[in-house]
């Protein structure tokens, strides 16, 4: 696979930013006690996706040396990468404007620069939320579609990959919003209700575990796909797959959230350890998807 760490991080951050936006939107519908999570999710989405996109551009050949060529990226409507270019181009500014609409004032010396824009954003809040939600869903699904369209890597050429990336995006975005929200709440000495998020997260992680297993089962139907799955479950990539993706990223967090939920939010450290595990697992998953991609043809056979 010619795509390396920059693309793995981009896939992770793109999903995370999309999930953080959707978490923010869910929080805003769930009452004022979730304002901290709403703001945290909205604040980190734009910068996360923008940083991921910067990595994507950094990975380009001539596009990095002659940036004006990037305008050509918008031209082929048959290409998932063109869809992605449009999605990112719209999503990053909308996510930033959405953050302005829902967050509080900055320090006065900075606020005066953004105050006029913020006033417009607050007035257009509903439109911004709808646009941010639609674009976030599109961004979360698109990263999987990008990899699943070509026929060259059977493990990736599955409709389950976009589903897996969507669920993982929701999960990592939620984790990032909770971690950032928690840090902010501690600084402001306010109590953060992690209980609801732990319950939502149990559902998400269980679904992700199911989709992951289904994806591996479907992937192993072809010879090359079977080699890929073997690499993941019992080959060179198995230690990272089992320890980081499965244990730290899925099973561990479920246990942490179950215990935390049973204690009705009295173990924020346990919950935060679960969130950190989800983030590590989400990043490792993107890496492994690229590393385990075995080409459909290893040589000619007539």
């Amino acid at each position: 696979m010619v795509w390396g760490w920059q693309i793995a991080w981009y896939l992770f951050l793109g999903g995370l930013g999309a999930g953080a936006t959707l978490t923010s939107l869910v929080a805003s519908r769930s009452g004022s006690r979730f304002t901290t999570i709403e703001r945290a999710g909205a604040t980190l989405a734009g910068p996360a996706v923008a940083f991921g996109t910067a990595l994507l551009v950094f990975d380009l050949g001539m596009g990095r040396r002659e940036p004006w060529r990037l305008v050509y990226l918008y031209s082929n409507w048959q290409s998932p990468m063109t869809w992605g270019t449009w999605i990112l181009t719209l999503f990053i500014p909308i996510a930033l404007l959405h953050a302005l609409a829902v967050t509080g004032s900055l320090a006065p010396r900075w606020e005066r620069f953004v105050a006029p824009v913020r006033r417009v954003c607050v007035r257009a809040q509903i439109a911004l939320k709808v646009a941010a939600g639609v674009l976030a869903l599109a961004a979360a699904i698109y990263t999987g579609v990008l990899l699943s369209v070509p026929p060259s890597f059977p493990l990736l050429s599955s409709w389950l990959l976009p589903v897996l990336f969507l669920v993982s995006a929701l999960s990592t975005g939620l984790s990032a919003a909770v971690v950032v929200g928690h840090i902010k709440a501690r600084r402001q000495r306010i109590e953060l209700d992690l209980h609801l998020w732990g319950r939502i997260h149990i559902g998400l992680v269980v679904v992700e575990l199911g989709v992951l297993l289904a994806w591996l089962a479907v992937g192993s139907a072809s010879p090359a796909g079977s080699t890929s799955v073997q690499m993941l479950v019992s080959g060179t990539l198995a230690p990272v797959f089992w320890v980081v993706v499965v244990m730290a990223g899925l099973v561990g967090p479920v246990l942490a959230f179950v215990v935390e939920t049973a204690k009705r939010g009295q173990s924020p450290r346990l919950a935060l350890a679960g969130e950190a595990g989800v983030l590590a697992g989400g990043l490792a998953l993107r890496y492994l998807v690229l590393l385990a991609a075995v080409p459909v043809l290893v040589g000619p056979a007539l």
């Binding site: 050949g61 596009g63 050509y72 990226l73 990468m81 070509p150 060259s152």
Partner: peptide, 11 residues
Amino acid sequence: VGCKYCIVACP
């Protein structure tokens, strides 16, 4: 632009 998507896509 050298995005390498064509290299990924060629079976």
